[in-house]
Design a protein around this nucleic acid. Structure first.
Lengths: 184, 184
DNA sequence: ACGTACATGTAATAGGTTACATGATTCA
DNA sequence: TGAATCATGTAACCTATTACATGTACGT
């Protein structure tokens, strides 16, 4: 149940409404874990029942009321316990790999277009990560202890995107020739 | 429903029983898509109902009977259609990233051990991929068209493992110092 | 006698997606 | 007037994991 723990981390950093959490999962935290607002609301309700978080209504003017969730002491204990259990190896699932493997049974030109699109996507994400790194951590040697995790996760994102681009490049070199990579 | 398509690819390459498919998903195809035997049996039943695969009983001596599944013409059409639909961007979920982000709220030494274990795992997988590449494709320029997909997927695995190792190295450099990487 | 490989499944539960539903405010 | 942002949720469905269940054959 890693979504639960991702939410606990996010709330330990700062209390938030379900809506705000959903947006964080779209942005910074979403660099390594995605979740939809429907799912977040459901998990948040379960976590409140388990007393890992508590909730207070906040009235706002000009905006709908919101429920601000905060991590409880029990939530902090749960999060600390979680860091003490070993992580099981990640299950990898690459739909692009399924498609590459389907090459002899399908339409190569469409598959190659798909790889080009994926390559563009990796490029855009990489650019976004690099901008974030530049803006928030211009001097990596001066990062404070409580921010080093966020920085390392960003680094992980950068390395993963670079590897993704290299893979697309190898695929395109092989299937479309060196001229077939598209833009950039 | 990419599992369905991964099974179609696997059966298009060679007919197999559910048990054999489960083993393929543990080995070569499992390099990019994992599935348990329970799930494979269930999906196979659904696919048979949809006439994407058909099944005949094979008697074996000294072993239990098996059901050999083969892709049908409708299955081949479905697979070809699949290669014509664009792939949606992959949802990334890294539990290790959640843990790194949980650093200020947990037990750093256990988290660092976890990273070391992950690094070892990446190393072992990389070694396995490299051996496979050496054994099956000693000369990359001489790979036949119908095997180029499998080779490219292996290459993707190698690049991903290398990126994973680099990430672990950066984390350990930062959190445990240059001497803290463990073996290898 | 015990473990492993072969072989197939069911049942319960958990996790996740898609579609639907509502309603206020702000900005073009 | 219409779209976007803020804000919360329900319902149906699909996908995936874990645990349970059964039985043969072969090697040590």
């Amino acid at each position: 149940m890693a979504l639960e723990h991702a939410i606990l981390v996010s709330l330990a950093e700062r209390s938030a409404s379900g809506y705000e959490l959903a947006r964080r999962f779209d942005a910074s935290i979403g660099n390594f874990w995605k979740a939809s607002h429907q799912q977040i609301y459901r998990v948040l309700a379960r976590m409140e029942a388990a007393r890992l978080v508590d909730c207070r209504a906040v009235e706002q003017d000009g905006r709908p009321d919101k429920k601000e969730y905060a991590i409880t002491d029990a939530g902090r204990v749960e999060l600390a316990d979680y860091t003490r259990t070993p992580t099981s190896p990640e299950v990898l699932r690459s739909e692009l790999a399924v498609k590459i493997r389907a090459l002899p049974f399908g339409d190569p030109t469409t598959i190659i277009d798909d790889v080009r699109r994926r390559r563009e996507h990796h490029h855009a994400t990489l650019a976004y990560y690099r901008e974030s790194a530049e803006r928030f951590y211009p001097d990596p040697d001066a990062i404070e202890d409580d921010q080093v995790g966020a920085w390392l996760v960003l680094r992980g994102g950068i390395l993963a995107e670079q590897a993704g681009i290299s893979w697309c490049d190898e695929i395109l070199d092989r299937l479309a020739g060196p001229e077939g990579h598209g833009t950039r």
